[in-house]
Amino acid sequence: MRRHLPRLALVAFSLLTVACVPKKDPSTSPEALAAAAKAKADSVAAAQVEAARVAEAARAEAAAKAEAAAKAAIAKATADSVARAEVIARAITATRSTFAEMIFFDYDRAELTTESRETLEAKLPILRANAGMRIRIAGHTDERGSDEYNLALGQRRAAAAKRYLVSQGIDESRIDVVSFGEERPMVEGADESAWSQNRRDEFEIVVGGDALRVP
């Protein structure tokens, strides 16, 4: 303790000296003014930065919203388009199916039945809506009877369908006919269930099938 006495005396003197210095007005001192000005400037800058940050955030948010909205719109449009395309595709498929629907004949007959006429009627709007369309009607027979005669019978069956379509106003130059007789059966078999399905006319689009218009 005795060894530290000089140091303690020095500290006490220093404190006394400081306490005896006369005080000045802080608001009027140049340093204070400068500091205040600086603080004020800093505050303004900070506010400006903050405002900019907020604005940027708002812009980003707005952009994100806009982008999301755009994406949603695109998605919706896409979905609508796909749906529309699907609707169109379904309609075209249905049109093709209607057009391709076969007609059937009684044994050794080439006359159209009432049902065959109705089937042909359904094809008329398609032919009218597609004026550039050319078709081929192929006549077939069952396996019974003369192979050669069946080739001729198939021709009469195809011609019967053509004759009906022409009678309803379809230009005959748009319709080709061909017979395959018994050479290309749809169903293999030697009973009436097979024969009845093989006595038929098939309908094929030769030209205009790629750009088929739905009536």
Partner: peptide, 8 residues
């Protein structure tokens, strides 16, 4: 031979 478009 036989030939034709509508019948032969």
């Amino acid at each position: 031979y036989a030939a034709g478009n509508d019948g032969t």
